[in-house]
Design a binder for these strands. Structure first.
Length: 132
RNA sequence: CCUUCUCUCCGCGCUGCCGCGGUACGCCUCGGCGUAUCGAGGAAAGUCCGGACAGCAUAGGGCAAUACACCGGCUAACGGCCGGGGAAUGGGAAACCAUUCACAGAUAGUGCCACAGAAAAUAACUACCCUCGCAAGAGGGAAAAGGUGAAAAUGUAGGGUAAGAGCCUACGGCAUGUUUCAGUAAUGGAACAGGCGGGUAAACCUUGUAUGCUGAAAUGCCAUGUAUACCGGUGGUCGAGAGCGGCCCGUUCAAGAAAGCAGCAAUGCUUUCACGCCGGAGGGUAGGCAGAUAGAUCGCUUCAGUAAUGAUGCGGCCAGAUAAAUGGCAGCGGCCCGAAGCCCGGGAAACCGGCUACGGGAACAGAAUCCGGCUUACAGGAGAGAAGAUUUU
RNA sequence: GGUCCUGUGGCCGAGUGGUUAGGCAGAGCUCUGCAAAAGCUUCUACAGCAGUUCGAAUCUGCUCGGGACCU
């Protein structure tokens, strides 16, 4: 296998895309709120290789314009990309498949630093919960 | 030089690190890596119109529904654009100029026109005139006068008459018709004729024209998956067709006539026949490929045309995502606003202009099948044109 | 992505071109020893901008807001 040069990636295959999986995540998943974001996650035992599927969302109720929604989703994805390595090893150690969805639930557009803080705090909390 | 308006164009740039989507090539452990290259807009928006494309429907006619409406042209098409005509408004002494216009029909019919007013559409309350009557008043004539109102029955003058009236005449006004001239036409000029009984059609309507319905979540293929399922009345088989349905599986229905012709009715046509039937409630999949990105394409040249636009030639390839890519951080520069400084220029001065440390700001907004328009939003900048004001010469 | 409906005081709501009803709520007054109830008075409105019309909440166009449906 060729050695990966970079680990801070977030490709299309790492994103949560399937309607059924998303429905399952929202019906069966656990959730907690932290500041302006709400985290929904669901773990299953990995069969072949442990992995991670991610999704972000912003409600049309809070931001009417598509430009604002796109901006917030991009900032959240960027924050997840930069803090992914903090908890990916934990997931792999536990041998779990983790589906994760992050929703933004405020009416103000956050700056990037604030997004990073929120996501890192959420990741720490999530790591604590996953560690038995 | 300043202000305002109109039109056209642009709507931050560069560098570094990390990251995302498509395509091409290479590598291998076959789903990843590497390299190269491309990667939001003038409105991508609103979804207000028109098409392309796709599926279904399609015997003809009538009614209904919706939209449009001066003329000519452009266009794939349009409710769009261009040119012309007419009207209104504003400026002006006028010539004329600018802006706007949903700009067919009100003698085809119906409705409505509050309040005020005699009366709001075949108008008689007062005043006027005639007749009858002692009088009060009654009958008739007559739209010339009457404080209203958004709107009052074609204006002025004369004749005429009992009093009056387009009742008649002259000069006007308004629309209509005929002829003629100019123009492709709308229309405009002139002459003649007969007329003049308000407004409202973004009230119903009439006339003319156009429109089959549904929309890429359309549609085709592949994969996955379930049910040859269940309940009540009474049991089995076949069953064209129809209904349910996004699709599939399936399920339901029908007899002496039934069904269809997808807004409605009639005529007509088509299909089916073999005997007995009615109702209820459901299951699965929702993933991939195509559609789908080379086109009514873009840039430039030349030609035709007043123009919209069209044609010829040369060159180019310019997003294709799908819980939805084009981002994050940092630095430098440019732009705009404010400005200490008193540095520079002009000036007698007031002051004006320039420069700079520093501080602040950078709009509206994100493709979702694709095009042509319309409408709306938009910090700032550039160019062209028009109007106005001030100063200097 | 597409289709449709709707907007009248603080709230609910009537109003088919001619002075924007009514109820609840608020304020004041009367009544009462004080309150409640009742009565009277009052305040606050046609989402915005244009057009048609003598006149627009109503008709037409555009914009803004709210909601529903197809999936």
């Amino acid at each position: 296998m060729h050695q990966k040069k970079h680990f801070y990636t977030l490709k299309a295959t790492e994103r949560l895309k399937h309607r059924k999986k998303i429905d399952a995540l929202f019906t069966a998943g656990q959730k907690f709120s932290l500041g302006e974001i709400r985290v929904v996650y669901h773990t299953t035992q990995a069969e072949e290789q442990a992995g991670l599927l991610l999704g972000v969302g912003v409600s049309k109720r809070y931001f009417k314009k598509a430009v604002d929604r796109n901006l917030i989703k991009r900032r959240l994805r960027e924050a997840i990309r930069l803090s992914k390595l903090d908890f990916l090893p934990i997931v792999k150690e536990a041998g779990l498949n983790l589906d994760l969805f992050i929703l933004y639930t405020s009416k103000e557009i956050p700056c990037f630093d604030h997004c990073l803080e929120l996501v890192q705090a959420a990741v720490k909390k999530l790591a604590r919960k996953l560690k038995p």
